[in-house]
Amino acid sequence: MSLRCIIIDDEPNAVNLLEVLIGQTTQWQLAGKCYNALEALDFLRKHPVDFIFLDINMPHLTGMELAGLLPPVTKIVFTTAYAEYAAESYSYNTIDYLLKPITLKRFLAAQQKIETAFEKTTPMQVQMVDNEPGYFFVKSGKTLQRILLDDVLYFEGEKEYVRLVTPASDLLIYRRLKDIDEQLNLPFVRVHNSYIVNSKHISKVQDNHIYIGTKQIPISDKFRDSFMDIIKKKIF
């Protein structure tokens, strides 16, 4: 399984060991190595990853303090020499708790837990139905979930994924926003590099923003003219 991760640890030898284990036993991409929590915070703002290896006893901010600053969805594998923090660690989105020195056997067990965790939360795949423009299917495992186009409030691009939002659901799907845009017609309108909105659900347009319910969506310069051309046709 291909996953992106980083190592956050102030001990170079511990970082090197994990790097070797990752390189020799997994297909994961090691996106970065950070030697303190402040460096890690800066890195994670710019480079999203699937999960992190996080040491606990570090200068400036401990691993536990850092975990409290990260988005709750951040998946964590704690790596530490201190067993007494194990119970506390599971108040976060913790996949595993590895005690140093980390052995090959223990790392392989952690690898299985990590990949199993991602198999359970794999983002959905969308299958547009060309000959039935009123709906499409979202695939999760062996299940196909039918989504009515009229129910979609907006699509939001998140790098290689797209977030599909309806009044009843918030789904993450494997598609590029550009690909979805090419398959949609009115009432769907591209208003930003990261957003396609269903114009039927727009409650107001104010300044450079669209409002769908309480959601505020920016209108970028690139798409403003084409969007306003559509809106002007509906102005009395």
Rank of each mutant, 00 (worst) to 15 (best):
S2G: 06
R4F: 07
C5F: 07
V15D: 09
V15Q: 15
N16W: 06
L17F: 00
L17P: 00
I22R: 05
Q27R: 12
A31G: 06
A31W: 09
K33D: 09
Y35L: 10
A40I: 05
L41S: 04
D42K: 13
F43Y: 14
R45N: 10
P48R: 07
V49E: 02
D50K: 08
F53K: 02
L54H: 02
N57E: 13
E65H: 02
E65C: 03
L69G: 03
L70S: 02
P71Y: 06
T74S: 08
I76G: 05
T80S: 12
A81M: 05
A83G: 04
Y85N: 12
E88Y: 04
E88C: 01
S91E: 12
N93M: 04
I95Y: 06
I95H: 06
D96E: 15
Y97A: 01
I102W: 02
I102H: 01
T103K: 10
L104E: 14
K105H: 11
F107V: 07
L108A: 10
A109N: 12
A109Y: 05
A110V: 06
A117T: 15
K120M: 13
T121R: 11
T121N: 13
P123K: 05
M124H: 10
Q125I: 00
M128A: 07
D130G: 00
N131G: 00
G134S: 06
F137N: 02
K139G: 00
G141E: 01
T143S: 12
L144H: 11
D150Y: 07
V152L: 05
V152W: 00
F155I: 03
Y161L: 13
Y161I: 04
R163A: 11
T166E: 09
P167R: 08
L171S: 05
L171A: 04
L172W: 10
I173T: 12
Y174R: 14
L177M: 06
K178H: 13
D181G: 11
Q183A: 14
Q183W: 00
L186E: 14
L186P: 12
V189L: 09
V189G: 02
V189D: 02
V191F: 05
N193H: 15
S194G: 13
Y195M: 04
I196A: 03
V197T: 03
H201I: 05
I202V: 15
S203K: 13
N208P: 03
Y211G: 07
Y211I: 01
G213E: 08
T214I: 13
P218R: 04
I219Y: 08
S220N: 05
K222V: 14
K222M: 15
K222H: 15
M228H: 10
D229H: 15
I231T: 09
K232V: 05
K233M: 14
K233C: 08
K234I: 10
I235R: 10
F236Q: 13
